[in-house]
Nucleic acid binder design. Structure first.
Length: 927
RNA sequence: GCGGAUGUGGCGAAAUUGGUAGACGCACUAGACUUAGGAUCUAGCGCCUCAGGGCAUGGGGGUUCGAGUCCCUCCAUCCGCACCA
């Protein structure tokens, strides 16, 4: 073999790894473990583009590096295979989503294999596989059988709750439950029918049924997720979407709000990502307060973070959707309020959000009593109050809250200042520093002291208490769709029961059409005999017709990889104890408040119930930046089939037009290719500059319609997988968003050619020397070993590629072909460019894969300089450079510097006040 | 509005702890070898200046012998949340 030929080498080694099961990982307690995980892809019909593998390449590099370092590495891959596009395709074509999914997966696998990843395919999981979703259903059952004990701060088995109810009723427990849960005694519990007991328990279970609003599209006959709805219309088809209440499964993630927040402190995630989760959880510390209503038994409950401003409350405001609105309206105001509520209901969520400037509201006719000063305050309905947050009612303090202020100004309600020196002539002042005025017994206190005092008062009078509120809502756990996991629940009457564990999995049934039934049931309603007969009974009961949401299968998959073929358990306890959790997780930040939050939630439940030994699933998380498309443009002269090169376009009236990026090389248009691209361009004419047609470009999202999609297969065919891998890393920092730009790829390809030539003589024959390595060679190598190792520790892959280039350049300059040097160098480069290094490694005569080679350690001895050059500065300005031996002390360097002629001249006989010698860097004399 | 990031040559970018800013690569220029190759090798490549030297990390100010890095302030771009009481 002569020249470096990736087309021969790469398939050869991919085949070798496959045959030898090189990447198979199993428990080995003699070695430390390392678990590298990628967010598994949804296999879409479009296949992979060059942006997808970015994170996989990074995790692959770390995996291979860790393996060379002696770790037992688990690096699996699988597919998040339930999802909407396959179902959509099924609705249109009638093809079963399983077939579409299977085809897409095999395409994805082929593409992934071409890149040479060190995946252990034996551990592959597919969420749509019954042997996988059996355990998703099993986990659902564990969650169903749990309740959350706030006193113990953990989930416990529902049987323990039943035992408590039997002993003490529910008076003494502090559990997460529905808001409308009544108090009951032991006797009352025992007096309930079995069904009523079940309905009561459902109010405590960590997954429960409740009425929730969904986006219902009557024309499509289906429920849509929030991101499928745009401005009140379905994204697909543009049909109107309405809010509709449906009985659905939810997961009580709110019970875990505090622990999800606290847990962030213990994990190594990026600050922006943690911040996103914190915002999503939305903790706010305040107080809950109840206001009596004049001439009524009702009380209005509010949540406030500023109870110190209680004396500044001049009105109350309730959300139009809240029950308060109807309850508090007096007969005189009935007509006005009903009209307002009806009008508010027609405005879509989005209208209300985008139109925050318009102030609207109406008086209910009722008055509340401020228990702190006995004052009568009017109760209004206003759509700036949200039904979904807090209690759906607020105490309005116009002096301290801008929305209350605007409302008060608009309806001419009083504004009472309660903080000294706050200027509220133009707007509210929400700041919390100052002393209280007009505030009765709070006068003279600071805001913080006033909060404490006001809460004490409320507690004494029994009208309120300190409270922590969270913004996070329970997660809806049902989709009225076909292509998802069936929920392992059947109904006796309206009471849900779990199927027997032995009957798992509940297989997704075949149906004739992937659409809802005529009477509006989900697609599963079409299945024949989709029923369940409990053990020992003869009657068949209907099964739940909703399927699980997309996030179900992805909320535990990292555990299944550890023990993918286990038929007896979702994971073997010992296997889990060995692999623990994920050491490095790489994926996009778009999952910040979805997958990553749900996964932490489920993991905590599994932890509480004793199924896993780690409370957090992902120790270290990196968000790889998206690779954007780099679109190319040609400029058509208006009204003509003539195109003008970018540099000359200012002289013409032109319209830009996307051109396929594969027709451009370094932004120069391939004219013949362009003419053949589309029939209407066959007789296109060009106005060239310097004989070339130069295209314009812009960074956009990679998409088919913009003709900027780059397929990794094309890059691999032309440049090779090793070049692709190195180049994606070389493109810039992993976390950064960056456009794909093939312009620089030649440099990386050249580097691999140079590496190849280090091992070959001028005739292209393999030739290495067995001579002892020279000092320069050792220095170059050890510098590289050190830098590459440090770079991986801080996930700086782009700088490592530079380091390799420098090393290869240095060795070429030294005409080095030393076996020992090159052998170590190969191991260092192998995580990045596995194929070429395997080939050269085997040419060196090694019989095992380079992935099992020991990573070389560097020796400081070789890194020492003979002489060090110190710039000598006087008052920070550079004067001269001195050469000194590397092992001189600071004082000795200082002496040499002071003795230097140029420096002497500058100092003009003066003695510097201060001399700063920075080791191996610089000498600075301060006069 | 709130929160978070980012800002360095023609371009992608380095600079890990405050210590010679621009490593490495692309593009560009010149040359060598060839006798067409999108090959390889060598050299040059921030700006100004005749030079000594000066100016440069979004703008302005500060701390320091010394600032891309720390502090204050303003500007621009991107992302997330958004009437959250």
């Amino acid at each position: 073999m002569a020249d470096y030929n990736h087309r021969v080498i790469e398939p050869k080694w991919q085949q070798y790894w496959k045959e030898n099961e090189t990447f198979k990982a199993s428990v080995d307690t003699s070695k430390p473990k390392f678990y590298a995980l990628d967010m598994f892809p949804y296999p879409s019909g479009a296949g992979l583009h060059v942006g997808h593998p970015l994170g996989y390449i990074a995790s692959d590099i770390v995996s291979r590096f860790k393996r060379n370092k002696g770790f037992n590495v688990l690096h699996p891959m699988g597919f998040d295979a339930f999802g909407l596009p396959a179902e959509q395709y099924a609705i249109q074509t009638g093809q079963h989503p399983a077939i579409t999914t299977k085809e897409n997966i095999s395409r994805y696998k082929e593409q992934l294999e071409n890149i040479g990843f060190a995946f252990d395919w034996d551990k592959e999981v597919q969420t749509c596989d019954p042997s996988y979703y059996k355990w998703t259903q099993w986990i659902f059952m564990q969650i169903f059988n749990s309740w959350y004990d706030y006193d113990a701060s953990k989930a416990r088995h529902i049987d323990e709750l039943v035992a408590i109810f039997e002993k003490d009723g529910n008076a003494n427990i502090n559990a997460a439950c529905d808001d409308d849960t009544p108090d009951f005694s032991t006797e009352e519990w025992k007096g309930m029918s079995a069904d009523d007991q079940q309905l009561m328990l459902l109010k405590y279970r960590l997954t429960y049924l409740s009425e929730t609003a969904v986006n219902w599209c009557p024309q499509l006959g289906t429920v849509l997720s929030n991101d499928e709805v745009k401005d009140g219309f379905s994204e697909r088809g543009g049909f109107p979407v309405v809010r509709k209440n449906m009985q659905q499964w939810s997961m009580r993630i709110t019970a875990y709000a505090e622990r999800l927040l606290q847990g962030l402190e213990s994990i190594d995630w990026s600050e922006p990502l943690k911040e996103m989760q914190r915002n999503w959880i939305g903790k706010s510390i305040g107080a809950e307060l109840s206001f009596e209503v004049e001439n009524s038994d009702l009380a209005i409950e509010v949540f406030t973070t500023r109870i110190d401003t209680i004396f500044g409350v001049t009105f109350m405001c309730v959300a139009p959707e809240s029950d308060y609105a109807a309850q508090l309206t007096t007969p005189e105001q009935k007509e006005a309020v009903e009209a307002y509520v009806a009008q508010a209901a027609t405005r879509s969520e989005r209208d209300r959000m985008s139109d925050v400037k318009t102030i609207s509201g109406v008086f209910t006719g009722s008055y509340a009593i401020n228990s702190y000063n006995g004052e009568k305050i009017p109760v209004w309905v206003g759509d700036y109050v949200l039904a979904g947050y807090g209690t759906g009612a607020v105490m309005a303090v116009p002096c301290g809250d801008q929305r209350d202020y605007d409302f008060a100004k608009h309806f001419d309600l009083p504004i009472v200042p309660v903080i000294k020196d706050a200027d509220i002539s133009e707007q509210a002042d929400p700041t919390k520093d100052g002393t209280m005025i007009n505030s009765g017994f709070l006068d003279g206190l600071s805001c913080n002291d006033a909060i404490t005092k006001a809460i004490e008062f409320a507690e004494e009078k029994g009208i309120g208490k300190g409270k922590i509120n969270y913004r996070i809502r329970d997660a809806i756990f049902a989709r009225q769709r076909y292509w998802g996991e069936p929920v392992p629940v059947y109904f006796k009457g309206n009471i849900p029961h779990l199927v027997d564990e032995a009957d798992l999995p509940i297989i997704l049934p075949e149906i004739d059409k992937y659409l809802p039934t005529e009477d509006g049931d989900p697609p599963l309603g079409r299945a024949e005999n989709f029923t369940y007969t409990p053990n020992g009974e003869t009657e068949a009961y209907p099964l739940e017709l909703s399927t699980m949401p997309g996030w179900a299968g992805s909320s535990w998959y990292w555990y299944r990889y550890m023990d993918a073929h286990n038929n007896n358990d979702f994971i073997d306890k010992d296997v889990q104890a060995y692999w623990e959790n994920v050491d490095l997780y790489i994926g996009g930040s778009e999952h910040a408040t979805g997958h990553l939050l749900y996964s932490r939630f489920w993991n905590k439940i599994l932890f509480d119930l004793g199924h896993v030994n780690q409370e957090e699933p992902f120790k270290k998380l990196i968000n790889q930046g998206m690779i954007q498309g780099r679109s190319n443009f040609v400029y058509r002269v208006k009204g003509k089939n003539k195109f003008v090169s970018k540099g000359l376009k200012k002289d013409y009236d032109t319209t830009p037009m996307h051109v396929d990026v594969s027709l451009c090389y370094n932004d120069e248009l391939n004219l013949d290719g362009f003419k053949n691209w589309r029939p209407d361009l066959a007789d296109a004419e060009f106005i060239l500059e310097d004989g070339k047609y130069i295209c314009g470009w812009e960074v956009e999202k990679m998409s088919k319609s913009k003709y900027n999609v780059v397929n990794p297969d094309d890059i691999i065919e032309r440049y090779g997988a090793d070049t692709l891998r190195l180049y994606e890393m070389f493109l810039g920092p992993l976390e950064q968003f960056k456009p794909w730009n093939t312009n620089g790829i030649d440099g990386v390809k050249k580097f691999l050619g140079k590496l190849w030539r280090l091992f070959h003589n001028g005739n292209g024959e393999f030739e290495v020397s067995d001579a002892a390595p020279s000092k320069e060679e050792l220095k170059s190598l050890h510098k590289t070993i050190k830098k590459a190792g440090e770079d991986i520790d801080r996930y700086s892959f782009n700088t490592s590629v530079s380091t390799f280039m420098i090393c290869v350049n240095e060795l070429s300059a030294l005409k080095s072909n030393n076996r020992a040097i090159l052998s170590d160098l190969l191991v260092v480069i192998s995580p990045y460019a596995p194929h070429i290094t395997e080939e050269l490694w085997s040419l060196l005569g090694h019989e095992t894969s380079i992935i099992d080679a020991a990573y070389p350690t560097y020796n400081e001895e070789y890194l020492k300089e003979d002489d060090i050059e110190y710039p000598v500065m006087v008052n920070g300005k550079m004067r001269t450079k001195i050469q000194v031996a590397a092992d001189l002390s600071k004082e000795e360097v200082q002496e040499v510097a002071l003795a230097n002629e140029t420096v002497q001249k500058w100092l003009e006989g003066k003695t510097p006040k201060k001399v700063i010698v920075v080791p191996k860097k610089i000498v600075n004399l301060v006069v």
